[in-house]
């Protein structure tokens, strides 16, 4: 099964939380979702649970250490990498 395209999936997830700045997908994925106040710390827990569930992946401490984790685009990259290495 092909996973849903990660970036629009994530943007849609955040748009359920609040307004994501930008008019195009490219602009929207630049958003730093903490700085933009889109989620608080309990929000992160549901974000992780939802993403891990939707893409059948597991984040590790190493991923949380990455700067990329805080932007929608960066998170999409991490998710795509994890999906790519996942055993079929």
């Amino acid at each position: 099964m092909t996973p849903p395209d990660v970036r629009p999936w994530l943007v849609a997830w955040f748009e359920r939380k609040g307004q994501v700045a930008g008019s195009t997908l490219e602009e929207k994925i630049q958003t730093d979702y903490f700085a933009a106040g889109l989620i608080d710390s309990l929000g992160v827990v549901s974000l992780i649970a939802d993403v891990e569930g939707a893409f059948s992946i597991r984040f590790s401490d190493r991923h949380y250490q990455e700067r990329r984790f805080s932007t929608i685009g960066g998170l999409a990259e991490i998710v795509s990498e994890l999906v790519a290495v996942k055993p079929a």
Binding site: F34, S41, L42, V44, V45, I48, A49, D61, Y64, Q65, E66, R67, F69, S70
Partner: peptide
């Protein structure tokens, strides 16, 4: 902030990280 890889953070912050990110 919660995911701030540059700083180790105090006990409460590390505790918060443990609970939210590792133990959910």
């Amino acid at each position: 902030r919660l995911l701030d890889p540059e700083h180790l953070g105090n006990f409460h912050q590390q505790m918060g990280f443990e609970l939210l990110m590792r133990q959910h």
